[in-house]
Design a binder for these strands. Structure first.
Lengths: 127, 127
DNA sequence: CTCTCTTACTTTACACCATAAAGTTAAAAT
DNA sequence: ATTTTAACTTTATGGTGTAAAGTAAGAGAG
C-alpha cells in the first residue's frame, strides 16, 4: 500500500475521540454489557458479566451515572434491594461514537506496511 | 437478533485480554504510529503524530521500553541528539493480539446495538 | 572565549483514579 | 435476640497519566 499524505499530519494518531470515561476497561465492559440489554441489567448480573467486585462496580456505575451515560433504578425484589442499570440515550450515542473511533484504530492497525520517513540515514537496520 | 446462551456467561464482557499497557490512550497512539512505520520514528515525529508533550512521550516510551514493546536507539543528526523508537517483534505481536481483542469489542457493539459502521452509529432510535 | 538561546529530551511532583478492604443497611434464619 | 446473608457504599491506598521544571549540549552573539 502506498503511504498517503494523511500518515504524516500532526495528531494523526492522537485518537482524540477515544472518550476517557468509556475507554477505561471496566467501564467499557459495563457499557458493552448494557448496550446489549436495553431493558437494563441488575447489579449482580453486571458484576458477573464484567467480572468486577462489588465496590469496583459500584464506583464505576457512580462515575457513569455522573456522566449521564447510565441511569440507575432502585427497587426491591423479594424484599431485597435491587439496582437496575441501563444506558441513557446519551450513553448509547457516546458509546456508538466511541466504537466508531475504535474501528479507526483497528483499521489503522490493518495497514501494517513498512514505509520510510525522515532521518533514514541514522536508522539502524537490525532488530 | 436472538440472544444467545453465550450472552449470559460470567466474564463475557470482562475483556480480559485488553492489555493495560497498550490500552492506555497515549501508548495506543504511540504503538499504532510505530506499527505503520517499521523503520521507526523519531521522538519529534512521534510527538507530532500523537499530539503529546515531551515529558509525556518520554515517560510513556520508557514504560513501553520497560515492557519490551518498543526499543530505543540514540544517535545524532546534525550534531544533535536524536532518539529513534521502533516496535520490537514482541511489541508487534502484542499489539496485533490487542487489536484482535478490540475487534471483538467492536463486533460486540455492532451485534448488540444492531448497527454497523461509523456511519450508522448516530442514527436515532427509540428509548 | 563566555554567555545566552535553542533543541531535545528527562525527571519530578501532583492530582486523579482504579481497586480492594472495610463499613452499612436490612431482611432472613437460627 | 443475634447471627448470617445479600446488596450494595464508602474509605483508603497504591499506581499512573500529565504538566511543569530541570538537564545537557550544540549554536550563535558579542
Amino acid at each position: 500500500m502506498k503511504p498517503s499524505e494523511s500518515e504524516k499530519i500532526a495528531g494523526r494518531y492522537a485518537y482524540d475521540g477515544l472518550d476517557r470515561i468509556i475507554h477505561e476497561k471496566a467501564r467499557l465492559s459495563i457499557i458493552a454489557s448494557l448496550a446489549g440489554h436495553s431493558e437494563g441489567l441488575l447489579f449482580n448480573e453486571l458484576k458477573e458479566l464484567c467480572s468486577l467486585t462489588d465496590g469496583n462496580l459500584s464506583r464505576h456505575l457512580a462515575i457513569l451515572q455522573e456522566a449521564d451515560l447510565v441511569q440507575m433504578w432502585k427497587g426491591t425484589r423479594n424484599k431485597r434491594p435491587q439496582t437496575l442499570a441501563r444506558l441513557t440515550e446519551h450513553g448509547r450515542r457516546r458509546f456508538l461514537e466511541y466504537v466508531s473511533r475504535l474501528e479507526r484504530v483497528v483499521a489503522d492497525a490493518s495497514r501494517l506496511t513498512g514505509q520510510s520517513g525522515a532521518g533514514a540515514a541514522l536508522r539502524p537496520r537490525t532488530t
